[in-house]
Write a protein that binds this DNA or RNA. Structure first.
Lengths: 214, 214, 214, 214
DNA sequence: CATGAATGAGCATTCATTCAT
DNA sequence: TATGAATGAATGCTCATTCAT
């Protein structure tokens, strides 16, 4: 019986997602046709529809991946118990994105560059697609709360100025991350370490070479 | 011999841009058709082609407007001679975007909300459209240089930490601006003053209510 | 200005309907593609959509024509004031359909054969298409009421048996008409006059050559 | 060597036909996909192809059933030796279709409503499908001849007007049957007894309650 | 200049059918 | 035999763009 094993099914689904990500990263969500994706994946035009109900569902899967993988490092750090400064939070997140690839939940290596290029497109999408927006807002709020918690811990430990409002301060941290991502993808800002160094200097007025070795 | 005066031509062009901006802001670049724009502008389907060679050219015009109008305040401040802090640069920029509308070079009032929604979409566009990218990169670099100059003046005056690298520090400032714009448009961050307050606190460890009256 | 006159627009719409009717008559509703219709009409693939929102709308237009044109003669006769027999009602209707073409409301000649072939397909359609059904049921009821009125007049004049129930008797008349149409289209029953003759004989037990000259 | 017995094979074939009939009755021939049929039958997508070469063959099987089962009562009566009137022929046929189900050659109960809804769709099909047409015409001619014979016997016995032409009179009888079927399926004519009563009255000018008990 | 009808390539999606397992 | 994954042609419909009027 040619019934595919769940593993192989998942593997093929992942292949389609990977092919779509390459296409989307190269040509954009709306300049990529479903046949393009199928060709890139080396399968027939109808095959993707056995794994995804629609093009939007593929976009959604990739948008979810992008959000999750990009913010996983900062969320992990923020969800910990150590007391970190703002600069450390940003640095940890950007350092994880300095690798060529990140590893998703299923263990697949995902090229960071592709991921980020899709993430930026997701921002356009969530302006007019309620499903994308809902997912994104949920993810955003979750990360923001984690960062706010970390800021509170940082305040208790003296690593974060006590006058900052953690809930809003978290938005500043996220703003720095989003801002960096955009510049990296669109404006050739590849020097993540330099970016975080400057955050440190502006924030703290002092260089801390030991925590961000170049 | 033009049958219509250059003034009337320019006025009509502006009307088309305004109509397109409303459509793009509402439905997105790629979900808006040229007939949609024409209908919104109250003209015939073929008319926009007398003023723009293609849909892309309209997108380009709007992308240019968005970039110019959004960064005009910060560029004006940065191009000045006063010595400002990072927080002041950000605050000045965001304050200008707190108004309902901004005024373009021709004196037309442009709704800020529409402008920002188009700006976010522009970021997707410049990933795959060389013309958009070139224009955006040029604008970006220009603003960045102005901010770097301002940071240098700020360092000379002691308002900016002397260890910061101005060229890179300017990217941090721009990152904060971009990050705020995204959150405002996509994640309901409307409290610009709170955002800048928190930047101040994180940067300087102290509230300065006299420069950001709420 | 190339704005088409309402007359030309209507003429073109009618051409598309005529082309579609030829296709539908030849290949069936579902074996005919929209490009087929466009090709048959000698226009481009997108052109029909300027006149009809969808393929269904074309089917609907043709279904309406079929119903209207087929039952117009019997409705006209039934709506009159003369007292006719059942056989006369049937004969009048079938006689009108013996011509090569009938003339629609706009004065266009419509081939009867095509009309009938589309009508039979309409019967399938109304099983699963609410719009088609609603229209068809309304038309059916209208004709049925007219025929019932005629039967009542016929009873008053002695041309119709007094024991018949006009409302239900009208369904018998319509049944004869539908039955004839099906046989004509599908089973080569072309002899309408013979059919009505036999109705007369079965109904009245006597030939009436003077009212149905062969 | 068949791995399954001919009986089991036939049983499975019948299950597929039954599933297809439910689908066709509900959604129409062309809105039902092969996977739909397989799902309805609770088997895999490829399985029907072991029993039928194509979708058309399934349609053909159902069309044949519809024709056979619908006209079996009238053919049985007509093939007998008793002398019946036209009204009796129609009444006998419609009475058989008043049951919830009829029984096919293999002893399976077939819902009459489904059968009739498929029959109406068959009429569309035979316009453009030679195989369907050939089968239908053969069945039609067979029934017509039987009815003609019955009419001749009826004429000999005085139950049918002597002036009627039996070959053509048979078409009137079939027309009444087809007409009733269409109205039953499409126009909510459920009162078969009333319909036949009215046929009697129009034909004979007298009610005969003893032969059509309500 | 302006109109809007027309073009035709392109797209997302479906589905009858095949065939490796 | 049975499965269901895969194929790939076909379909209804859209839309950027052109151009006759």
């Amino acid at each position: 019986m040619p019934r595919i094993t769940p593993e192989r099914r998942e593997a093929k689904r992942a292949e389609i997602v990977a092919a779509a990500r390459r296409c989307f990263s190269r040509d954009g969500f709306h300049q990529t046709s479903m046949p393009d994706i199928a060709t890139e994946a080396g399968i027939s035009a109808g095959a993707p529809y056995r794994y995804f109900a629609s093009k939007e569902e593929i976009i959604l899967a990739i948008a979810g991946d992008a959000f999750r993988l990009i913010f996983e490092p900062v969320e992990r750090l923020a969800a910990g118990t150590s007391a970190t400064s703002v600069a450390d939070l940003v640095a940890a997140s950007l350092e994880a994105l300095s690798a060529e690839t990140v590893t998703d939940a299923a263990g697949h290596a995902v090229p960071v560059e592709e991921l980020l290029r899709c993430a930026v497109q997701t921002w356009s999408e969530l302006l007019r697609n309620d499903t994308v927006r809902t997912h994104a807002v949920e993810g955003f709020e979750s990360v923001r709360r984690s960062i706010a918690d970390a800021l509170r811990r940082g305040q208790a430990a003296g690593a974060v100025p006590p006058t900052a409002e953690p809930e809003r301060g978290a938005r500043v941290v996220l703003g720095l991350l989003h801002g960096f991502l955009l510049q990296r993808v669109a404006f050739d800002l590849t020097d993540a370490a330099g970016f975080t160094d400057d955050i440190r200097m502006l924030l703290e007025g002092t260089e801390q070479p030991e925590t961000t070795p170049r």
